[in-house]
């Protein structure tokens, strides 16, 4: 999977939920969204990319959400 596309998609999801007033809930919502709509290989591809690209421009809310889904 094209990880850069996935990263863009993940950040777009993050942007929507970032506007929500409750940060903790927003992180949960991003995590739930990815869990509910992303096929496992999409999730894995993004994680794999992030593990090798420490400079990837990922929103904090997305990073936090991914930690919720896949605790290190």
């Amino acid at each position: 999977m094209n990880a850069e596309h996935l990263l863009k998609m993940a950040n777009d999801i993050g942007t929507f939920f970032e506007a929500m007033p409750n940060r903790q809930q927003a992180i949960q919502d991003v995590a739930t969204h990815i869990r509910k709509f992303w096929e496992p290989r999409m999730q894995k591809s993004l994680l794999a990319y992030l593990s090798t690209h420490s400079d990837a421009e990922i929103k904090d809310i997305v990073r936090d959400a991914l930690r919720e889904i896949h605790p290190a």
Binding site: M1, N2, H5, K36, F37, W38, E39, P40, R41, M42, S45
Partner: peptide
């Protein structure tokens, strides 16, 4: 119990060989 691929994701996965 996991969601499957959506159409654009199918295309991406095809390009990826999976």
């Amino acid at each position: 119990k996991e969601p499957g691929l959506r159409i654009p994701n199918m295309f991406e996965a095809a390009m990826d060989g999976t």
